[in-house]
Each structure stands twice: as structure tokens, then as C-alpha cells.
Amino acid sequence: SKWSPSQVVDWMKGLDDCLQQYIKNFEREKISGDQLLRITHQELEDLGVSRIGHQELILEAVD
């Protein structure tokens, strides 16, 4: 995926409302499409996504 960080942010805006709070962290870390495809629970935790349910929603959406 050749998504830029801004495309990742646009994609996140289409996800569940409960995930919108994390967008600024993804933006700050400039998460690209390639990074998103390989993202782990630990990396999500580092991005402030501490709730497992929220991590799962992001990982499922990526899949």
C-alpha cells in the first residue's frame, strides 16, 4: 500500500466513532499505509490505543 499518512488519516475518519480520538496520534507519528498494514498490538498501544477492543477494530479494518 502506497498510502501517505494523510490517506491513513482519511481512512481512519471512516472508521467507528470510538476510534476518532486516536487520529491525532497517527497523524503525529506520520503512520503510512505500509506501517498500518504491519501494525501490531504493541505499536497500537504506543499510539495510545490501549483498549484491546479498539485495537481489534483497527486491526480488523486493516485486514
Score class of each variant (00 low, 15 high):
residue 6 S to N: 15
residue 44 L to E: 02
residue 36 L to P: 00
residue 2 K to L: 13
residue 14 G to T: 15
residue 39 I to Y: 04
residue 11 W to K: 05
residue 51 R to C: 15
residue 28 R to K: 13
residue 42 Q to C: 06
residue 56 E to N: 13
residue 19 L to F: 05
residue 4 S to F: 04
residue 46 D to Y: 09
residue 35 Q to N: 11
residue 41 H to M: 11
residue 8 V to P: 02
residue 41 H to Y: 12
residue 18 C to T: 09
residue 27 E to K: 10
residue 44 L to D: 04
residue 56 E to L: 10
residue 25 N to V: 13
residue 22 Y to K: 05
residue 29 E to A: 15
residue 6 S to L: 11
residue 47 L to D: 01
residue 8 V to F: 01
residue 8 V to H: 01
residue 1 S to A: 09
residue 50 S to K: 15
residue 52 I to D: 11
residue 54 H to V: 00
residue 12 M to R: 00
residue 51 R to E: 15
residue 23 I to P: 04
residue 50 S to V: 11
residue 52 I to R: 15
residue 58 I to N: 01
residue 30 K to A: 12
residue 45 E to W: 09
residue 44 L to R: 03
residue 45 E to Q: 14
residue 26 F to V: 06
residue 4 S to K: 10
residue 15 L to N: 05
residue 59 L to G: 04
residue 58 I to M: 10
residue 49 V to E: 01
residue 29 E to S: 13
residue 59 L to E: 04
residue 33 G to I: 07
residue 50 S to F: 10
residue 3 W to F: 05
residue 30 K to R: 13
residue 50 S to M: 12
residue 36 L to D: 01
residue 15 L to D: 03
residue 43 E to W: 05
residue 22 Y to Q: 04
residue 25 N to R: 10
residue 19 L to N: 04
residue 5 P to K: 05
residue 5 P to S: 14
residue 62 V to L: 08
residue 35 Q to K: 13
residue 22 Y to A: 01
residue 13 K to A: 09
residue 48 G to N: 04
residue 63 D to A: 14
residue 9 V to C: 13
residue 56 E to M: 10
residue 54 H to S: 02
residue 46 D to I: 09
residue 1 S to I: 15
residue 20 Q to Y: 09
residue 4 S to W: 00
residue 20 Q to S: 10
residue 7 Q to E: 14
residue 7 Q to L: 03
residue 13 K to Q: 09
residue 60 E to C: 09
residue 22 Y to I: 02
residue 63 D to K: 13
residue 8 V to G: 01
residue 6 S to F: 08
residue 23 I to M: 07
residue 3 W to M: 15
residue 28 R to L: 10
residue 46 D to P: 02
residue 59 L to V: 05
residue 9 V to F: 03
residue 52 I to F: 12
residue 23 I to Y: 06
residue 37 L to I: 10
residue 28 R to Y: 08
residue 28 R to D: 13
residue 63 D to S: 15
residue 32 S to A: 12
residue 41 H to E: 12
residue 39 I to L: 15
residue 27 E to G: 05
residue 50 S to Y: 13
residue 14 G to K: 08
residue 62 V to Q: 02
residue 40 T to L: 00
residue 57 L to S: 08
residue 22 Y to F: 02
residue 57 L to N: 05
residue 52 I to T: 15
residue 1 S to V: 14
residue 48 G to L: 00
residue 7 Q to S: 06
residue 57 L to Y: 05
residue 45 E to K: 15
residue 39 I to Q: 04
